[in-house]
Structure formats: C-alpha cells, structure tokens
Amino acid sequence: MHTRSPMLLAVALALPGSAAAQLSRAALVKQSDIIFIGTVTQVHAVAVPEVPASDRTIVVRIDQVLEKPAAVALTPGDSVTVQTVRPGSLKPGTQATFYTTGWIFGRGVAVREVGHELGHSPVVAADQQEAVARARHEVNDAELRAHIRTAAMVVAGRVEQVRPAELTPAPARPKRITEHDPDWQEAIIAVQDAIKGAQAGDRVVVRFPGSSDVAWVGTPRFAVGQEATFLLHKDSTTGSPFAMVAGQSVPAYTALHQVDVLSKADALRVRALIRKP
C-alpha cells in the first residue's frame, strides 16, 4: 500500500551543481525517456564498441526497466553504456535508478544520464516503479494543464460534419502544390459540455490536416460521430482565421497537438486540472 504524497516522494538526487541538486523526481522524469534500475559494473568503460570510452562513461547492468520506448530493446541483464553527468560520480557495485535519454542505438544502447537516484541495495523495484509512474502522471498532468491554459476553448462534444476547408488566401500567396500540403479540412463540433470559453449547444469549426503526408503524421484527425474532449486554439496556422457556419463568419480553431484531443471521459480530468490551484 503506497499512500505517500507526491511531495514526500521528492528526493535529493545526485546531480551536478547545487542548483540542480534538488530536482524533483518529476523533473527528472520529464527530461527522461529511458529509466531503469541498474548496477554499475565498470567505470571509464563502454559496453559497445561504437561508443567512445571516456572518464564519463560507465557500464551499467540493467536490473529492472521502469520506462522505455517500445522500439528500444532493453531487458534485465543487458549492459548499457551510460554517459554520466559528472565524472567519477558512480563506483562499481553501486545500484541506482538512472534517469536517461537515448544517445546512441547500435548493437547495444548508450544513454545520457539526466540524473540518478542512489538506491539502498537492493532497491525495492516495485516502489521505484510506482514512484516513477506517479512522477510520469504528474508530468503528463502538468503538460496537459499547460495546454489547457493556452487553449482558447475547451469542450466535450461530438463531430457533426467534416468538410474541406474554404480558406481565403492572401492575394500574394497563391496555393502551392506540394506533397506537404496539409489539405485542410474543417470539423463542425457540437458542444455538449462547455468547459472553457464556450457554451453548450455552440457549433465550433476546427481545422485539421486531411493529408497523409509525413509532415502531418501524428496530428489529430476528426471523423463524423467522433465524441471527445477538445482543447481548441485560435487558428494561427492556415492564414485564414475565420470560417463559415450557417451563413455566419465565426472564429476558426485548430487542435494540432496530440494532447489537444482526449477521450470524452477525460473531461472530468480536465475539469479537475482547471480547478487545481
């Protein structure tokens, strides 16, 4: 049973310089994409030949992977090369939780240390797993709050219609033919739950790229009948800030970031984050 508050989980971490020494676990997690518990086996050494050895490189045996991208092959028992923040900061036999970013991917993985958290050997893996997961949740919430703050409108609603966007190009900028053309589309969303900047029953125009081009991969798309929670930003991308609905000129919006479109159930989470001081 883990009932400690996130504040109590903030720990002093081994980082260079006093200013960074009190970074919260959440701050470390935010900067990291590969997090693991490991034991230092060699210093001034590397695990794979494609990485140059230096006084900052150490070899760490993975005890437990806490977070990693799905593509990365990393399992307990693997040896990884870690470029430490500070030379000589870790000795052979030391066990720690390593907060890192990917550096070189070859026959093995080499990572750059963001920071580490010394463990009392053996580190209780389950506790660390939960602590890191909680920190990641904090990071995700903070990112979502930032998006909510910058959004002009936050609504839960249903996509009623999708149509090609009718943009008004500036006279000096004719439409260009390029494979990266976003092929702007417009979704008409019926607002069911007005969370910020709108009223229930409003009809809102949201522009999104219809193109399959690589430049727009990962950008949210809309389909008729789709129900979701939308974080909407005034359209400053297409160069045409207004759209037509029922014969009326209305502001157009975009939702181009992945967190701009959440599940309908996430409306509760969004409301809670807005209320949070």
Binding site: A71, F105, G106
Partner: peptide
C-alpha cells in the same frame, strides 16, 4: 535498423 531498436515498427 540496429539490434537495440529491434522493437521498432515505424
């Protein structure tokens, strides 16, 4: 694709 990215599907 290197061995250390064996899980990639991009």
């Amino acid at each position: 694709i290197p061995a250390s990215l064996s899980g990639e599907t991009w």
